[in-house]
Every structure is written in C-alpha cells, then in structure tokens.
Design a protein around this nucleic acid. Structure first.
Lengths: 262, 262
DNA sequence: TAAGATTTGTTCGTATGTATC
DNA sequence: GGATACATACGAACAAATCTT
C-alpha cells in the first residue's frame, strides 16, 4: 500500500475559495477524520473515547461532543453508550448518502425532464448490461414485483402505491448492477420520483392504456433479461422510459421539496 | 403553494429498518428541519437564536449547539457570531454535496471502469445536447482551456497538472448543461478522477500519441459545439472517452481513498 | 478609537442514563 | 443486584467575535 503521505493535495475540481476561521469542533472533527484515513480504519474499528480525545486535543467535553456530532451527521461514525462503548467508524449507508445528496437538490428545483433525461440514458444501458447475468433468485424477485398489481389502480392512493412499487422495481435492477456508481445514481432518481406529488390530474380516471403498457414492459423486460437478450431489454426499457415520462407529464406531477429523513 | 400538510409520508425507496433511540440533539435538529420546511425558508432566512431554542425545546445550551453542528455539517445552516448574528439557512454548496457523497464512495472501492461506464454514456450525450447552445463567452473559455498546454508533459507533476486541467474542461461543460442533475453527476466523476494516484507507470515517458489525440479532441470538440454539430460532438467525445480510459488503464491509476475536505 | 451591547463559542463541574460484567 | 465504564445532558460562568454608538 503506497501510503500517500500528505502530498500537497493538488487543486480540487470545483474547489471553493474557502479560507475562513473554523470553529474548534470542526477542527477536531477534521483531525479525527485525518486520523482515521491515515490508519486506514474500517467499518467497525474503534475510536478513542471522550476522555482520551479531551486529553489528546486539549479541548473540553462539549467541544469533543460537538465534533462527534458532526461526524455522526455525515454518517462516518456511530456511537454507543455503556462499557466497551464509544464511537466506531461506520460505513456511510446508501440511504443516508441519498438523503444528504437530496438536501443539495432541495434547493435546485429539478424538473421531471431533468430526471428523465438521465433515466433514458442510464436505465436502458443498465438492463442491456444486465441481460443474461442475473441469477434465478433475482429473476424470481423481479417477476414477482412485475406481477404484483394485476389490476389498474382504482383510487389515487392505489395508484401512488403502484407508482412506488414500479420504482422499487427499478431500484432493484440498479442494485443488481455491479457498478456501485451507476446503481447509486439510478436508485437516487427512483427515490426522488417516489417522493412525487400529483399536482393536478387531467383525467379523472388514470390512463389505463398507459398503465397496461407499463405493466407489460416490466414483464417482458424480465423475460428479456432471463433469456439474455440485451438488445431487446434495451429497447423495452427505452420504450418504458418514454411512456413513463409521458404519463407523469400528463398528470402534472411536481417534485416535492423535502428535507432529509434522518 | 399546495402545502402537503404532513401526509403519511409514503414508504421511501431503500428505507432502512430504522427504529432506534435518537439522541436529544438529533431530535432537536430534526425539529428545526421540519420547522424550516414548513415555513419554506430559503437561503438567507434567519433561525431563532440559541436562547430562543433553549426555551422552545426545553433543552440545555450544549444540546442546542450539538443540534446546530449537525445541521451545519450537512451544509444546511451557517452561523455567525456577534449582534445580528445567529444561524441562517444556507443552501448546500455543490462542493459540499460532492464531499458528502464522496464519503459514501470512500468505502466502495470504485474502479476506473465503473466510472468510465458512466462517463461514456453521459458525456457524449451532454455535448450532443450542448451543441449550438453555448454563448461566445463560454466557447472562448473552453477554447482557452483546450489550448492551455500546447506541449506534452515533461514531468509526472506536469502530467498530473494537465490531467486535472482536462477534467476541469469536462466540469466546465457539465456546468453549462441546464440540467443540474446531469451536471452534478459529471462534475462528481471529474472530481473523483482528479484525486487519482498514478500507481505504476508502464512507460517511462508518457504516451505522446495518446496525449496529442486527447488535445485534438478537445479543440475539435469546441469547434463542433460552436458550429452546432451535435452528432460530431457526440462522436468526438465518445472517441475521447475511449482514449482516456485506455490511457488511464495503461498508467494503472488507482482511486485514492480520501475523506471529505471540509 | 473606545466602550458597550448582543450573540455565539468554550470550559468546567456535576448528575444522570445505559450497557456490560 | 451491584460495580464499572462509558456516553448523555444540564447549568453557570467566562471568552471571543462583531455590530452600534
């Protein structure tokens, strides 16, 4: 392992001017981060306890606690009370990462077409890559999800439920990719879309034809994936994305501005 | 504005089991977040001061301060001392969002091909869309960046510099997209790649032919963008991505595991 | 420049809660 | 149950920053 030994840290992309005075807790948090990186600590590894840090950094208990809260908020540590307790290095969860990123887009007012521009690029490519690589368990899982709602929704609540279920289907596909980055982006978009609000419905009853097409797409897609037909999977997903975008535009869905959950 | 009035918050995508006891500071932080969302507060809006929150939530000063640190760590507030000071709602910066997301991937060990799989999908599509839409100022900026290094690098340091410069070129393109989501993903990848480490160099001198091809690509790309030739821009970028990936694989670059900067 | 007011920043002492043995 | 080791929370005091006069 070539320990990079504090190289001059070449200029970062999109590096803000940043100078500023940093409060003690933030300084302490940064030092702890460095400490963790230097020792290459991993998921369950223990950090020194409060008392040790108070001594180590020469600050008070309150300051150390604020520093720990900073790290905790970023998902980098978890803390337990009691004997043998203390703070442990904690892998940032996907859920938390999505929430944190969601906070950024909270202020950005994404549009549906922004999201679908990306979905139309990524999801067809994803399934094309996935075709023929999924094990039986995953395929069964996907088949079950595709068949879960055999009838069109009767109520707005039911329709929302089906909408969420459909997005879970896509998130499941994303998780099957062995590309964490691709999987994350797709899951993140699914999550944003699952927080949608129907602003005004143009048709009193949901468009059954579009619904049926969406359902057929899912079912056909799983079979294309099972048979290893990447081109067909790609085509189905492309068609599905276009249909989904059209349906959502028809219903004038709006993105809900929402803060992180945790 | 249709205030969504605390709807039952439909099941989230990738919602962890999550129950757990939440510490007082976290509870307070959550309440403040809700408070902000309910009132639809924006960038510069003021939050109540410490004393008011102590009274409001019936907790001690230390607890309130820990709560504020949590929000600050997520980029949601900024705090100033002095009269008229206090905490303000603060838009999450792109830089901070990338750092926070970087923490997630810190544990994931992304490979170069993971990143390039996405780049090859997104960047050609981006430039195809951008063709003919850029103003003269932006085009000039891009031209300048493309011509910045007229000679191949002589030293590893120089080469790294050029590498970063090239990624800045891509980040600049991403910012020109009027799709914040697409722009963010591309910039984020550029940032990860800018933190690369050359692990072992196969050729003592950098491959000049590949370098020259990369440079030509950038120059030709800007002209294609200026003339509005989307197909050509797409083709150039595709070729460029393939070349870049090949070059990096040749040099056996490794992704540096690095914690957030701020 | 200086003084005073306001608001956050930091410390210390003490007490309480919680999990392990 | 009791002892121990740890985090959690409170309250009072003082320090530092920054605005106003």
């Amino acid at each position: 392992m070539t320990k990079s030994s504090t190289q001059p840290s070449s200029p970062k992309i999109t590096d803000a001017p940043r100078a500023q005075k940093r409060s003690r807790p933030v300084q302490v948090a940064d030092q702890i981060k460095r400490w963790v990186v230097e020792r290459d600590l991993r998921k369950g590894d223990k950090l020194p306890n409060e008392a040790a840090m108070i001594a180590q950094f020469g600050v008070s208990k309150g300051t150390v606690r604020e520093a720990m809260r900073i790290l905790e908020a970023q998902g980098l540590i978890v803390t337990k009370t009691g004997p043998g307790g203390g703070s442990l290095v904690g892998e940032v969860s996907k859920d938390r990462a999505m929430s944190l990123l969601g906070n950024y887009f909270y202020f950005k007012d994404l549009s549906l077409s922004d999201i679908y521009e990306l979905r139309k690029l990524l999801e067809p490519a994803l399934v094309a890559k996935l075709a023929g690589t999924l094990d039986e368990g995953t395929l069964t899982e996907l088949r079950d999800m595709a068949h879960q709602y055999p009838e069109p929704a009767q109520t707005p609540e039911e329709e929302k439920e089906q909408h969420i279920s459909s997005l879970l289907f896509h998130a499941r596909l994303a998780d099957a990719a062995d590309n964490e980055l691709l999987g994350f982006v797709i899951s993140f978009m699914a999550r944003i879309l699952s927080d949608l609000t129907v602003y005004r419905r143009l048709y009193a009853t949901p468009n059954e034809e579009l619904w049926e097409r969406g359902r057929r797409h899912q079912i056909d897609l799983v079979e294309a994936l099972a048979s290893g037909d990447g081109d067909r999977a790609h085509a189905i997903m492309t068609s599905h994305m276009e249909g989904a975008e059209r349906m959502m535009n028809q219903q004038e869905m709006r993105i809900t501005r929402e803060f992180m959950a945790e």
